[in-house]
């Protein structure tokens, strides 16, 4: 019967449940309920930058984020709280906001979020948005060729499966 696939799915669910609790804890008292999301496209493009393939915003990941978050008040609160944190970090180094920074300065701030204390606002924001950004970006067939993936699985399948990949 079907076995281990669901183990991974459930494992993701446990992590998500834990993060949901964390989200409530870290953004519960913040005054970011109407904070603008202007930092979001630049932030996502730092997570997935443009090189010889498109960036996150080139693939509309930022718009997908906002669409998805608009269906969950808690999710939207996390995006707004995270955006506020990004802008506040940018202002500490004299910029008007995160989107005004050059790419290397943005990377410094994102690295700060990625290595922040577990269950802190920047870390929860980073972990959730990183996962969601990759999920949206790599679900777009435009990203597949550069990643070396020749899917989707059907209708062609992989009749060459027993041979070394070309």
């Amino acid at each position: 019967m079907r076995r281990r696939l669901f183990l991974a799915v459930a494992a993701g669910w446990v992590l998500l449940a834990q993060k949901r609790r964390s989200v409530a804890a870290v953004i519960g008292g913040s005054r970011s309920s109407a904070y603008p999301l202007t930092a979001l496209p630049a932030y996502l493009d730092t997570i997935i930058p443009r090189d010889n393939s498109g960036s996150a915003s080139d693939f509309g990941v930022d718009r997908q984020f906002i669409d998805q978050a608009s269906r969950s008040r808690q999710h939207m609160r996390l995006l707004r709280a995270g955006s506020k944190w990004l802008d506040s970090e940018a202002r500490k180094i004299g910029a008007g906001g995160f989107s005004d920074l050059d790419p290397s300065s943005r990377e410094v701030i994102v690295e700060r979020a990625a290595t922040a204390r577990i269950r802190s606002l920047p870390r929860v924001f980073f972990d959730r948005t990183r996962r969601d950004a990759f999920r949206a970006y790599y679900a777009d067939p435009l990203s597949w060729e550069r990643a070396g993936y020749e899917g989707p699985p059907q209708p062609k399948g992989f009749p060459d499966h027993a041979e070394a990949p070309r």
């Binding site: 281990r4 696939l5 799915v9 997570i47 997935i48 930058p49 990759f134 790599y138 993936y149 699985p153």
Partner: peptide, 22 residues
């Protein structure tokens, strides 16, 4: 183990972010 497409590689296999991740 559901390691059959790029989404799972991006979220479970490859660490980090940015150009290095791509």
């Amino acid at each position: 183990a559901d390691l059959t497409g790029p989404v799972k590689y991006a979220t479970r296999v490859v660490q980090g972010w940015g150009r290095q991740h791509k």
